[in-house]
Each structure stands twice: as C-alpha cells, then as structure tokens.
Design a protein around this nucleic acid. Sequence first.
DNA 1: GCAAATTAATGATTTATTCAAG
DNA 2: CTTGAATAAATCATTAATTTGC
Lengths: 225, 225
Amino acid sequence: MSLVASTRWCPMPEQLMILEEMYQSGIRTPNDVQIQQITAHLAFYGCIEGKNVFYWFQNHKARDRQKLRKKLAKKLHQQKHHLQLRLQKIKPHPLNNIIDYQNPCHHHHRPYDHMSFACCSQLSPICLSHQGTGVEIQSKVVNEYYRNKSGPGDMLMPKQTTGQNSSYSQDWMMMMDMVPRPSYLSSSSPIPCCNMMMNSPKIPLKTLELFQISHINLKQNNTKL
Amino acid sequence: MSLVASTRWCPMPEQLMILEEMYQSGIRTPNDVQIQQITAHLAFYGCIEGKNVFYWFQNHKARDRQKLRKKLAKKLHQQKHHLQLRLQKIKPHPLNNIIDYQNPCHHHHRPYDHMSFACCSQLSPICLSHQGTGVEIQSKVVNEYYRNKSGPGDMLMPKQTTGQNSSYSQDWMMMMDMVPRPSYLSSSSPIPCCNMMMNSPKIPLKTLELFQISHINLKQNNTKL
DNA sequence: GCAAATTAATGATTTATTCAAG
DNA sequence: CTTGAATAAATCATTAATTTGC
C-alpha cells in the first residue's frame, strides 16, 4: 500500500477552506442534493465524492461538539474547584460535602442542531430507470452504502427460471460471497424456501440466474482487508 | 397526508421472509454489492430500494443485540437475586453485603459481530459518467444520503464565469435552500472569499452558474415535508 | 362490531464510538 | 495526533396491533 492510490480522501486545502466556511455559515447536515452540489463544486479543486462531503460534515460536527463538551467540562470542573476552595476558606468545616467531585456528566441531552432536518422531500416513488445499464454499473460507483436504491421497475430482473423452490439459507449464503461467481453452478437446485416464520402461505420463490454462484466461501467475507 | 403514498417502505411478507432467512443464515452487514443483489431480488415481490435493505439489516441486528442484552441483564439480575437469597439462608448475617444490587451493567464492550466486516472492496475510483444527465438525475433517486458520489470527471462542471471572488458564507447559504432557484439572480456578486482559517494563500474561487439562486429561504429547509 | 385512543413494532435518521491511515 | 471512514447505539416517526368505550 505504498504507491497505490490512497484509500481515503485527501482533501485539498481549498476544499477544506470551503467546507470550513460553509460549516461556519451554519451548514451542519447537508441533505443529498446539497451534498451533490457541494461535491460538484469542490470537485474543481480535486477528486472528491459525495460521501467525503457527508463524512466531513458528520465528523466536523461531532468533533466540534466533543471539543465543546470537553471545554465545558473543564470549565465546570475548575469552577467547582474554585468554589470549593472558596467555601473551604469561608467555612473550613469537614462537613462541606455539598459539592460532589464526580458527576459523570453524562450529557445525554441530544443537542439538536438548529440546522438539522430530515430530508423527506416527497418525490414520487417512481422507480428510477437505469437507462438499461443494469445493477453493476451503480454499485460501488454511484452508491457507497445503501443508498443504491435500484427500483423494481428496471433492474435486469431476469426471466426467472420457473418457480422451483430453493432454500435461501443455502443459496443466499452462496450468493453472499464476493468472489466472482462461476456460472457453472446451475440454477436447478430444487429446494423448499421461505418456510420459516410468518404464517403466510408458502410462496414458490424463484431462483434467479443472477444468484447462481459457487459453493466456496460460504460465509461472509470477514476479512477487513 | 392521507392518501399520499406511504413515506416509508412497507415490506411485503415475502420480502420479510427472505430477509429473515438471510439473517438467520448469518448475513449481518451486507456490503453494497450484496445489497444491490438482494434489492434486485426482493424487488420482484414489491417496491424496494437498497437503503431499505440496508436499514433492515441494521435495525434487525441492533434489535437482536438489544433483545439479547435485555435477556442477559434479566438473567443476571435473577441470578443475583437467587444468590442473595441463598446466601441469606446460609449466613443470615447483616454483614453479607458482598452482593451489590446496582451494577448499572454498562456493557460497553462493543460486541463485534463475527460476521461484520468493512466493505473495502478496492474498485477503482473511476468517476462514473452520468451519461450526460447532470447531477439532478442522481439526487434523491439514485442517492439517498451521501453515497451519491459523483466523481470529479464528469459533473456538469460549468465553465466558471471567470475568477471573481465570492463570499461562500453568503452564497452557500443561499445555495443551500431547497427551493428551485430562479436564475435571475446574476452570477456577478463580487465578494471576497475563503479568507477565514487555514493559512494557505488566498485562492480566487469562482462562482459557478450552478449555484446562482434566490435570496429567499436563506436558512436551511427546516420543515419536515 | 367499530372507530378513537394507546401501545408496540419497526423503518428511517442522527449521534456516539471506534478503527485505522497518514 | 488528527481525521477520514465505518459501525453501533440512541432516537425519531410512522405504521400495525391492540385496547377501550360505546
């Protein structure tokens, strides 16, 4: 990992300046459109993705709060200390236990940002057409996490190979491994499926070509790279 | 808000069954590709997006843990209680204060899933070409949160209207509102910019057409719909 | 039975914590 | 040590179950 392109975003000073200024301006939790715009703008100064902007605000906000908390705690502690000293001077009495030196300061008050809001813009739930490019083109490039929506409309929803029941516990575990799956594993493993919980009638689920994968690496990829 | 399409995902029983079975199979934190595949598969049974799958696993895992914790806490409590009773019987002595009835059980041990892993698949950071559709087509449809990456390569990175300095503290606040921005606000507000922190040299930032927006709604959209 | 009122589940969001690159 | 990235925990908010009074 020396000459390999860095695995994480290295913000350019200009980008940091702009972000910082935006933060100072009050922006705390930009929504997706805002993130897009910011990203597009900052992209002029260097490679950047939406998630970088997202994370930056997230971390900056959090560490701001953290700093503030520490400062406050310190101040409070000092105040107490001073107060105690003063009280001791005033009433040098062993029963002056009014002030407790602990108080874990569990600050569990959730300091709602005056800026924060939920982005519930009521866009119609139309199911985005991927321009016929299929799923893969989105993964890891357009989407970073889960936001890769992929509606039901398009999605190279394969002509499912007729309703043969299949055990998801098995097939999905297979599908779930990340190695490029050889397609020699046929789609013909007949298995009962989805008969575990939920008292709904047993539905003949279909095995999709998309998920025909090898038996190796049954478990999820545990390595953290 | 009565006959409007539901704002949140209403999973179909089949989808739930499949998800549940996958969970039982050991899947805990599917990565983006997995989420894509799962989504594509579940889409057959009803409208669904990647984020729904993501959230489902997130919540399911969390609530599983939670349930387990509660169970354990209960058991522990009972054990203590029984032990105390027993001790009382054996040594009905007032000095039997070995057992403390508190112990807040702060279980701060981060129970790493044996399944969890970071999805660091090393796909090249190629900057996805949006097929010339620009930013908007992605927002709120392809992206749900931050994962809307949008590389620097494409992005209708406008021919910036020559380097006139502009105050981001102001312009960005304006840009940040969500209302469709009328373009009558010219791109010619000349302002000093980015001279706040960071001792890097002052760089003449450009005002991009993309961000010319109205002055109304200066603050972030706080309303929730 | 049946709808308003409560409560329980659970989808979605935000915040806190942790890991680890540099 | 700083900070980008990722995950877990806490919380919010909406929908479903359930109860309750009629």
